[in-house]
Write a protein that binds this DNA or RNA. Structure first.
Lengths: 340, 340
DNA sequence: AGCGCTTGAACAATCGTTTGTCCAACGCTA
DNA sequence: TAGCGTTGGACAAACGATTGTTCAAGCGCT
C-alpha cells in the first residue's frame, strides 16, 4: 500500500517521453507545444502514478516556495486567530501554505522573520506583531523579502491592511450617544500604537459631533489585556469626578476585564454603566451581560493581507494600504439608556 | 544594504577552499577531519558573509525539511491555540518550523495532510483534527509520513498525546462532592469521541466513589460549542426530575453556553447551581461568575506531541501514547455548597 | 631512498525540477 | 527534388546543498 514516491522521471518513463516534456505538460507551461496525443499519455501516466511534484526541488529551481510566513504576537487573541484563519483561507485559495514563525525568545524579535526569509523558506511575510519595533521594519526591508503588515501601520508607508479605527470607534460611541449618554469614558488601547490612537481619535470625534466636550471626557489606557482593562476601570471608578454612565472599550478583551471590576464594585451593567467594545468574537456573548460590540472584519483583514502579499510576490499588485471599514454594531445586553 | 544572498560557494571562495569543506565545517559533520586553521577561516568567512543555508537545497539533498505540519479543526478554541503554541515552542527549540495546513473544504479531509506530506513539504504531521475519520488514519499511515495525534486517540494504537480525561473529570466532580453536592449532572462532550467518553467515565467513577448512583445521574451531550452547551443546559432544566444542584461541563466552551441559559432562567450561580468545567483558559475568568475549572496541560500537550514527532522523525524515539494528568483545580466563583 | 600510512582537502555525483537550446522529421513550395 | 519553415520532443544545464571517493602532501619507517 505504501508505494515509493514517484517523480517526474517515473512518469516520463511510463509515458515514454522525456522528463522535460512531462514537466511542461504538468505545469501547464505551454510556451512549448506538445501534441495532444502525448499530452493525454502523460496525464494518464501521472494520474496512474499519483504523481506529486517535489516542492523542494521545484522551489530550488524556481526560487519560489508557495509558502507565506506569518508571525503573530499571540494565538489566543481572537483578533489574531481570526486574522490567521483569513490568511489561511486566502492563501489556500491561491495554493499557498502558511508557516507560523516562532519568535525565538532571547534573540531579537527580527530573528524569526530573518531566518524564514533568508533561508528561502517563505516567499513573503505577514507581519502582525504588536511590538512597535522600528528596527524590525528596517531589517525586514533589508532582506528584500516582500511583506505586508496586518492590523498595524508603520511610518515608512509599508504595505498594510488595517481597520478603520476611527469609524469603528465612532460607530460605538454614536450608539451610546444615541441612547442618551452624556458622560462617556474611554478605555483606550495602547496610546502609542496605531490602533490605540485611531480609536481615541474616533472617540473624541464622535463626542464632538454630539456636542460634547472631547477634552473633558475621561480616557484611561487599558492596553489589550484583561488585567489592563480591569486596572483601567478601577482607576476610572476611583477618580472622584461625576462618574460616567457609559464606557467605550478599545478592545473586547479589556472590556471583559472592566466587566469584572464593575461586578465586583456592585455596579450593574447596563443599569449602572453601559459598556460597548470594539471587535466582536464569541467571547462577547459568553460574558455576562453579553457585550454590545462593533464587529470588525478581522478575518477579512487576514484575507486581504494574504492576497496583497501574494500579489506582491507575483509582481501583479502594487501594494499600498487597505483600510477596512467596520462591519456593524451588534447590540447585546451591555448597553441601555442611562438610568437617570 | 540589501546585498545578494550568499551561498556556500561564496563562503568557499572567500575562504579559499572547496564548497564541500565549507559544508562539512558548517554542518558540524566531522566524519571528515578539517584542520583547525581552515576551520576558523571558514567560520570567519561565513560570519562575514552572514551565510544562511538554503533550506530548499538542503532539503532536496537530505530529504529533510525541518518542518512539521499541523492541522487543527479550529483556531479560536483555546485548547487548540494553546496546543499550537506548545508545539511551536517545542519545535522551535529543536529547530523545526510549523506549517499550518489549511483544510481545503470540498475535498476530503485527508487532502490537506496528503498534499503536505506527499509534496515533501513537511517531515511529519501533528494531527489534532476532531473529525473522527477512520479513513484518514489509514490514508495517513499509507503515506509513510510519521505523525502524532494530539488530544485524540485512535484505535490502531497510533502515536498520540492525550489528556487523562478520567482523572480530570474526577478532580472536577470530586470538588462538587466535597462541597456537599449530591445531585450532579454532566454536560458531556461528544459521546462518540475519545475525550467525551473518558470524561463521562470519570464523572461516573467519581460519583460511584462518593457512594452516589452513576446511572441515575443526568447526562446531556453538549459537544464543544457554546450553542451545544446552551442547548444541553436547556434540556437539563426542562427534564422534570428534581433538579441537580451542580453540573460538571466537559468543556469550558460549553460551560459558558450553559451559564447563559442559567442567567436567562434566573438561576443564580453558584447559589442555585454550581458549575465546574474542564479546561482552563482566560475566558474562564471573563465570564460571570468566573468559572471554577480543572486546569489541563494543553500547551504541554502540544510540546510533547511535537517532541515525540521529532523523535520519530529522527529515529530516536519509539512513539507510543502519552497521557498527561490534569494540572489542578482552579476554584473561582461558580461553585459553592448546595443551597438547601 | 623507497614504501606505506595518515591527514586534509578537492572532485564529482546526486537530490527532482524547470527551462533554454538543439535537432530530427515532416510538409510545403519553388 | 532541393530548400526551408514548423512542429514536437529530447538534451543538458542549472538551482545550492550534502557526501562518497579520490588524491596529493607529509611523515616515519626500514
Amino acid at each position: 500500500m505504501r508505494r515509493r514516491k514517484s517523480g517526474l522521471r517515473d512518469v516520463a518513463q511510463l509515458a515514454g517521453v522525456d522528463v522535460s516534456t512531462v514537466s511542461r505538460v504538468l505545469t501547464g507551461n505551454l510556451q512549448q507545444r506538445v501534441s495532444s496525443e502525448t499530452r493525454t499519455r502523460i496525464l494518464e501516466a501521472a494520474k496512474a502514478l499519483d504523481y506529486q511534484p517535489n516542492a523542494l526541488a521545484r522551489g530550488l529551481r524556481t526560487s519560489r516556495t508557495a509558502t507565506l510566513g506569518i508571525v503573530v504576537p499571540q494565538l489566543d487573541n481572537p483578533v489574531f486567530s481570526s486574522a490567521i484563519r483569513g490568511a489561511e483561507l486566502a492563501a489556500g485559495r491561491l495554493a499557498y501554505s502558511l508557516l507560523i514563525a516562532h519568535r525565538d525568545s532571547g534573540q531579537r524579535i527580527g530573528g524569526a522573520y530573518r531566518r524564514l526569509a533568508e533561508t528561502h523558506r517563505v516567499d513573503g511575510l505577514l507581519v502582525a506583531s504588536l511590538d512597535s519595533d522600528r528596527d524590525l521594519l528596517v531589517e525586514l526591508r533589508g532582506t528584500g523579502v516582500p511583506f505586508v503588515l496586518m492590523n498595524r501601520q508603520a511610518a515608512g508607508a509599508a504595505n498594510a491592511v488595517v481597520l478603520d479605527n476611527e469609524r469603528a470607534a465612532r460607530m460605538a460611541v454614536g450608539h451610546l450617544v444615541g441612547l442618551g449618554h452624556r458622560r462617556i469614558a474611554h478605555l483606550a488601547g495602547r496610546l502609542e500604537g496605531y490602533n490605540g490612537q485611531g480609536r481615541l481619535a474616533g472617540f473624541r470625534a464622535a463626542l464632538a459631533e454630539a456636542g460634547l466636550d472631547p477634552q473633558s471626557a475621561p480616557v484611561e489606557p487599558a492596553g489589550y489585556s484583561v488585567e489592563g482593562g480591569a486596572a483601567a476601570m478601577q482607576r476610572l471608578l476611583a477618580s472622584g469626578e461625576p462618574q460616567p454612565t457609559a464606557v467605550f472599550a478599545a478592545s473586547l478583551i479589556s472590556a471583559t476585564g472592566a466587566l469584572g471590576v464593575l461586578h465586583a464594585a456592585g455596579i450593574a451593567v447596563p443599569r449602572g454603566m453601559s459598556v460597548v467594545a470594539l471587535h466582536d468574537a464569541p467571547v462577547a456573548s459568553m460574558v455576562y451581560p453579553a457585550l454590545t460590540t462593533v464587529r470588525t472584519p478581522t478575518q477579512e483583514m487576514g484575507e486581504k493581507a494574504a492576497e496583497m502579499l501574494i500579489g506582491l510576490i507575483r509582481g501583479e499588485a502594487s501594494g499600498g494600504t487597505i483600510v477596512l471599514p467596520p462591519d456593524d454594531l451588534v447590540v447585546r445586553a451591555s448597553t441601555a439608556p442611562p438610568a437617570d
